[in-house]
């Protein structure tokens, strides 16, 4: 991915305290144009609080956040013109249909005349809500409401989108559709900050992720970077050409190996260490004279990385 020089989202030593509770405690990261940035952490980790600060709905106790170079504290009006925020609730009105709802927000964002009509039409096309234009919002399903809210978020063509748990409560089909939409939004060069509990989807969707727990940033980077940098435990499997028992005995003598199982001529064990240590292990096994046909380790999913980084303290 090509990063433009100027990040669209910057969190600069962001702190937010509620009394003695440190909801956000010194968080800093940047999101660039065209990037989908996943924000993951257990409940109460501070994701929504920091997203609300970015959306100018709350103020930091210390530190600052910038959207397209504008401070959320000093220039909230300029930030709001550049930002679309989709909170984890719908926020719909009674006695309003889909077109009227989008039309209202288009007007509220200062779109006038044909510009407004075109924006409403484009968003309805994009979110596949064309056929539901005259339908009252209260009669929409959860997935449709979610699409409508995404449409509302995009109505003024913001360069930054902040999506708080957009896939929560959606069925698999709606999730896939949402994922495709977010992918297309990123292709338009917008920066997308997204939080979700569905880590498998985030893993596929996000270019980079930030993991936070108890208000603190634990790791930032791509899933691969985080998993390689973290001190991880992985399951390693080796297939031997001849009798595997000597290899089992050799492995048992090592401190970084545990939980060895034998299945035919395949030996599986738990190895403590990152990918570099796995390469060293393979080299040492071969140097010890064992004939290895196959060496593999299970690739870490975002879920594994998250559980490892957060020490499994998911609430």
């Amino acid at each position: 991915m090509i990063h433009a020089r100027q990040p669209l989202i910057e969190l600069l030593h962001l702190h937010r305290y509620f009394g003695k509770t440190r909801a956000v405690d010194d968080i800093s990261f940047e999101v660039y144009p065209g990037e989908v940035f996943g924000y993951i952490g257990p409940n109460g980790a501070g994701k929504t609080t920091s997203m609300r600060i970015l959306a100018t709905l709350d103020e930091p106790t210390y530190g600052d956040a910038r959207v397209d170079g504008f401070s959320v504290v000093d220039d909230p009006d300029r930030v709001r013109r550049r930002l679309g925020f989709m909170p984890d609730y719908f926020g719909t009105y009674e006695n309003v249909n889909v077109r009227e709802y989008l039309d209202f927000f288009a007007r509220a964002y200062g779109l006038r005349g044909t510009e407004r009509t075109r924006a409403v039409g484009s968003v309805m096309d994009f979110t596949l809500l064309n056929t539901l234009a005259e339908k009252p919002i209260n009669g929409l399903s959860k997935g449709m409401k979610q699409r409508l809210c995404l449409g509302r978020t995009m109505i003024h063509d913001p360069s930054v989108l902040i999506l708080d748990e957009p896939a929560a409560g959606l069925d698999p089909r709606a999730r896939i559709e949402l994922r495709e939409m977010i992918d297309r939004i990123a292709q338009l060069g917008k920066a997308v900050l997204i939080s979700s509990h569905i880590l498998t989807e985030l893993g596929e969707l996000c270019d980079r992720v930030a993991i936070i727990e108890q208000g603190r940033l634990l790791a930032t980077g791509s899933v691969e970077e985080i998993s390689s940098h973290a001190e991880v435990v992985s399951r390693v499997s080796m297939r031997c050409l001849d009798d595997p028992q000597p290899l089992v005995n050799w492995l048992k003598a090592r401190a970084d190996i545990s939980d060895i199982t034998l299945d035919g001529n395949r030996v599986a064990c738990t190895h403590e260490g990152g990918q570099e240590n796995q390469a060293i292990l393979l080299r040492e096994v071969i140097q010890a004279g064992f004939q290895i046909l196959e060496f593999s380790s299970k690739t870490k999913s975002l879920e594994d990385v998250f559980l490892h980084v957060t020490k499994g303290k998911v609430q």
């Binding site: 044909t114 009509t117 075109r118 039409g121 484009s122 968003v123 096309d125 063509d157």
Partner: peptide, 16 residues
């Protein structure tokens, strides 16, 4: 929303 990326089917009716 970029005009190229998103179809512009809903042109203003009054102008049509």
């Amino acid at each position: 929303m970029s005009a190229e990326a998103i179809p512009q089917s809903a042109a203003p009716r009054a102008t049509q």
